[in-house]
Amino acid sequence: MIECKKLSKKYRSHSALSNLNCIIRENTITGVIGRNGAGKTTFMKLIAGYLKKTSGELRVMEENPFTSLKVSANSIFIDDQMSLPTSLTLRELLNSFARFYPNWNEPLAKELMTYFQLPQKAYVQNLSKGMRSTFHAIIGFAARCPLTIYDEPTTGMDAAVRKDFYRALLKDYLAYPRTILLSSHHLEEIENLLEDVLIIHNQNAFMHLSVSELKESVVAVKGDKAAVSEFTSMHNKLSINEVVPGMAMAIVQVNNYIRRENFPKLTFSNLTANEAFIYLTDSQEGGIDRVFERSELD
């Protein structure tokens, strides 16, 4: 469905994406995860054809999305700031989407508007942040596009609505399978929905794997300081600290399965997918604590 080779995007001299490679299969739900400013939105807007690439290759449905009518008619990009005309009511907006998208599911749109208590006669600019995001999400469901992209769709939604949104996303996907890209800062909320996770880090596709592979790629080890050091010397150490004198705890990236029984002196524990992601993309050794330590030294 989507193929990127050495895809790059620059805004003037500022590089937002550089040499990104990835392939996204048809009818999968992929979570696009990254720290602030990593390039998630740029990546998704390039795919939707909203932005023109600077260099590299990008094929969506076998075409260049920036100039493709096919991509435009078969994809939808949902975020919290979709520029919708302010002179039309919600109902009129839905009607115009219905005219553009051939698979538009009007009964679903109607039911969802009622369920989330969105008044048909309201205007988008008068909606609260959360209700506006909900309205955008409804458009995303009802458009039933083969490629549906949600960039931070739950901004402003309260916990109950977010839960409904994720459930609706899954149910709709089961009924009408399609390719979905979903970015969020709350990996723990979406991980069970995802087939794959694409981690964008430093303007690049850092990892592309399943949620369980992400979890298994990072472990926490605790134990005698010497034993922990010996273990970390064999693997990619992401963080280590001395909990109490003589006892250390380390976070380690592992490439293959660790036979835990071979390390009787160490205690292993798993991380959540979100914790694994944070450690893997933490470029600053020591984290925020180090900043305070440094500033106190000055």
Binding site: T28, I29, Y166, R167, L170, K171, L174, N192, L193, L194, E195, V211, S212
Partner: peptide, 10 residues
């Protein structure tokens, strides 16, 4: 997938 709100591939 529907029962537990998880991805059908999982």
């Amino acid at each position: 997938a529907d029962l537990f709100t998880i991805n059908p591939a999982t």
